[in-house]
Simulated assay, not measured.
Amino acid sequence: MEEQVQTPFQAAIKPGFTMGLVALAVTYIAYFIDSSLMASGWFALVALVIFFALAIYFGIQYRTELGGFMSFGTAFNFSFIAIVISGLVSLVGQILLFQVIDPSLPQVLAEVTFENSLKMMESFGQNPDSMPTEALDKLKQQSESSFTLGGQIKNFGFGLIGYAIIALILAAILKKRDKSLDY
Rank of each mutant, 00 (worst) to 15 (best):
T148Q: 07
D129W: 09
Q4D: 13
F158N: 14
L45H: 09
I173N: 00
D129F: 10
V89N: 01
A172R: 04
S35Y: 00
Y28L: 05
I173W: 01
S104F: 12
Q126M: 15
V46P: 01
L88Q: 01
G73E: 04
Q126I: 15
L54E: 05
V92M: 06
A44T: 11
S35V: 02
A167I: 02
I169R: 03
A55I: 04
G67M: 10
Q94P: 07
L91Q: 06
A39M: 06
A11W: 03
T18M: 13
L37E: 03
A110M: 03
G157L: 14
G162Q: 05
F80V: 03
G73C: 04
Y28F: 11
P128D: 10
V46C: 01
N155K: 14
Y31N: 03
A82N: 04
K119D: 09
L96C: 13
E122I: 11
S180F: 14
G87R: 00
F78K: 00
V46A: 01
W42L: 13
G159R: 05
S40M: 10
F43L: 08
S40E: 11
Q107L: 08
T18V: 15
F78L: 03
D34A: 07
S71Q: 03
A75Y: 00
L136V: 06
K140A: 14
V26I: 12
F114R: 13
I85D: 00
L91P: 01
I95R: 10
G67F: 08
Q152M: 08
A39I: 04
V5S: 15
F72Y: 01
F147C: 05
A44P: 02
I95Y: 12
T148N: 06
I166G: 02
Y183M: 09
G150P: 05
V89P: 00
G159K: 07
I95V: 15
A172C: 07
D34C: 06
Q10G: 12
K14L: 12
Q142C: 09
D34F: 11
Y163P: 02
F9D: 02
I50V: 15
